[in-house]
Amino acid sequence: MAFTSLKELIELAEKEKSTISDLTIAAEAERSGDSESEILSKMAKQLDVMEDAVRKGTESPVMSRTGLTGGDGNRIYQYAQNGKSFIQPETLNVMANALAVSEVNAAMGRIVATPTAGSAGILPAVLVHALDSGRFTKEEIVRSMFTASALGLVIANRASISGAAGGCQAEVGSATAMAAGTLVELAGGTPEQVGNAVGIALKNSLGLVCDPVAGLVEIPCIIRNGLHAITAQAAADMALAGVNSVIPPDEVIHVMHEVGQQMPESLRETGRGGLAGTPTGKRLREQVFNRN
């Protein structure tokens, strides 16, 4: 199967009364020659690494190697427990999960690039949150990760998943879209609703620039992972409620690519423009590298 069009994928799933995850598992079995159970156990291992990172960064503060960031996953996790937040404490936990994974990444801990290291917090955050909700089994969640992969493959093949090529929208935007679509399938939504979630989530990330302070995967990457985990859940709920993505998801993916190409180089992972170019951004760069 060529992962180049969501429309094709959705139509095939609906025609065969199947799911995007089942189609993707079958396609990978055919491509790799490995059995379905081998493929599933390989993916289960990735979920284990994701869960370890979530627990590590929520249950205790994890500081980055540079000392610029850290401890926010644990901070939000604690704050959610006091019950006086604006949004539901349970929802704050998904943010804590994402912050935690991104902080473990910045601390040179073990993570799974999903689709990249810079956007590695979002999918694990919603998956572990789904696991903790008790509504889904671990097996269901592992299967759903193939939906996330399929959505990511289409985005990677039609547009880009690299911040240097397409800005932060290509990394955090893609991860958010993958996570939103995955939750829709997990909750029993139709393949078409999965597509709507992708379209809705990605629209909300269009134009997001890649402007890391000192070129490091810390500021603003960690916070963006945290907030976008909540966006992913919200987009999934919108799609499940029946909200359509009026612009079809394939067109949204395509336009993300176009917007990325129109971004100046200074806003594509060069560590020069955007937040990296602010007086404080420049000062922190000097502080970390001890020179300009």
Binding site: E28, V49, V104, M108, V112, T114, A117, L153, A156, N157
Partner: peptide, 18 residues
Amino acid sequence: MKYQSPFEIIGPIMVGPS
């Protein structure tokens, strides 16, 4: 085509940050 396997999207398992 550039990407074919689900494990190119979810993976590799790696020590961060880049």
